[in-house]
Design a protein around this nucleic acid. Structure first.
Lengths: 332, 332
DNA sequence: CTGAAAGCGCTTACAG
DNA sequence: CTGAAAGCGCTTACAG
């Protein structure tokens, strides 16, 4: 059906080897035959079969991108940037949406291996993710961004979350808050763990209220955060401020407070984390800690392709970027 | 490097043909040898090479998904659903983000053809999209969702946007509005054209203010909508309500009104279109016309794979779903 | 500068 | 029920 190099070779009266050479822009071919072949290829509207090529070259120029939830604006934004950047570098990306299910992640990893992708970018890494570390023995290059593995020699680009939460607490304390609640994420992600650690450290440092009821698991999910905020509000001695470990949860907390008749920030302060785009909207104006999604995505894509994927001397990349508190109008 | 069927054949003491048969679960093979081969495949941790397989079968079980902007929550949500649904049906999806650039779309179409995808799903179709209709002569199946081509025998799933805008105007008129502005999208998309047409029809029907200044091109972009809203507000005789042709622009309009000191809906009403998830947030509460993103995405994925991609008798699918006005708190 | 040949990892008639 | 062989569309030493 599709036209092949054999078709071109016939029309041009040369061998397929020669056609292949000009198509791959090798230098050892006469300009005259080169032009002829090129013209014919264009005329026949030839489209090389990348899969056939991969069979010989062992390179698919395809990357897997595994993320936990494309519906989360943070991952939508970073996925979008990663796709665009690696495209400019000559790679296609197969996107895989795990919906936060480890089983689905394993399934996707297998599929990506069967498709012989040149490497995998993970936004979905758990702290003890054996499926990912196993990749090392199987020789498939990978990098994790945002969420990362426990430690060691794997590639990652993430944010100094302890520092980020510290900034949030600093600010709330400077506003006079003493009873601060914390909405955490699942303890299986580095981001949740680090952010919680940052909170615990800061709480100790400032000698804030130690009430265990103030720390709640919002699971990084808007609805769950909503419920837990409800619980927080209903406490006999409720907090005056809530720090949510991501913006999605902060949005849930905000929604809950408003629907419960509270004014934000007059009655209660709310701080998020990530700085997704909607947080800056005039009707939201969420105070949050920015992890610079665009920068993190761009760096992940570029460094993975340019440093890790280079066959000869694959360098390791390990980066921990500085977060930045962005003060808007949900805090006082 | 990777283990192949040849490796398995050697260990099992059978031919590669037999190995291939059991791996593909053909029936004509003795249970005994079948079990042996399976055991060995598992033991060696065999992962079939999908690309090599495609070379023979002419099926890649890969789909291209071309969308205009993954950062737009509508496309993030629908892409996420499409990816998950086709995955369950045995397909991987290569995602392509055109950033609304026709040139990039053409580039992506070529790449997808070179990768021999089994079909392409377009969320980015322009009304006169020759690159897409050309696909018919090249025998690559496709479907467009949301935005669709001019008409004819191509596959699409979209919404009755004339009806949707009609509902919005009906409601505003019932609230007493007579001077209604309209923020349109680029006239190259069916969605923009239909929504504008719906507005013009309704305006005529109700004999509303015909001032041409009231219709402005927000380009489906939040920032552009922000500027045009500013222009609208500054009119000597400003509108009392704004209909935005998508939620993104409505969000921009809302942001602009608030920052300009107006109260919504007390001073001005705003209606969006699409019903992206953030529109329902307590701080947003955007009145909008829902196109049922989840339903449209699910149907697109299912019908494309089950109807269009079946080799024998590919059926055409053409669907125009009914929209629904969702009244929240940006209108009065 | 060019061609014949081998081979990448599979599948599938054909023959037995 | 199984194997030998051809072939999918390419690339790349090897030889000239």
């Amino acid at each position: 059906m599709d036209v092949t190099i054999k078709d071109i070779a016939e029309v041009a009266g040369v061998s397929v080897a020669t056609v292949s050479r000009v198509l791959n822009n090798k230098d050892n071919v006469r300009k005259e035959t080169k032009d002829k072949v090129m013209d014919i290829a264009k005329e026949l509207n030839y489209q090389a079969d990348f899969n056939a090529r991969s069979l010989k070259t062992n390179k698919t120029h395809t990357l897997g991108l595994i993320i936990p939830d494309l519906t989360n604006p943070f991952y939508a934004q970073t996925s979008s940037i990663i796709e665009n950047v690696v495209h400019d570098l000559g790679y296609s990306t197969i996107i895989c949406n795990t919906n936060n299910q480890p089983k689905l992640q394993d399934e996707y990893i297998n599929i990506l291996r069967q498709r012989r992708v040149d490497g995998i970018i993970f936004g979905s890494a758990r702290i003890d993710d054996k499926s990912i570390t196993d990749l090392k023995t199987k020789n498939v290059p990978y990098i994790t961004y945002h969420r990362c593995l426990k430690k060691g020699d794997t590639n990652y680009i993430t944010t100094d979350d302890v520092k980020g939460i510290k900034q949030a607490v600093d600010y709330l304390v400077s506003c006079g808050h003493k009873k601060i609640a914390f909405l955490s994420g699942p303890r299986i992600y580095s981001t949740s763990i680090e952010r919680l650690r940052g909170f615990l450290q800061a709480r100790k440092e400032y000698n804030l209220d130690f009430d265990p009821d103030l720390i709640r698991d919002g699971e990084f999910v808007e609805e769950k955060a909503w419920e837990e905020t409800q619980n927080l509000i209903n406490l006999t001695d409720p907090p005056t401020a809530i720090i949510a470990a991501n913006d999605i949860m902060a949005l849930g907390a905000l929604d809950c407070c408003i629907k419960s008749g509270l004014s934000v920030p007059q009655d209660i302060s709310i701080i998020g984390y990530d700085d997704i785009y909607i947080s800056s909207h005039a009707r939201i104006q969420l105070t949050t800690v920015s992890v610079h999604p665009e920068k993190i995505a761009r760096k992940t894509a570029e460094l993975f392709v340019k440093k890790v994927l280079t066959k000869e001397n694959s360098e390791s990349v390990q980066l921990r970027l500085d977060p930045k508190l962005i003060i808007r109008n949900t805090t006082a």
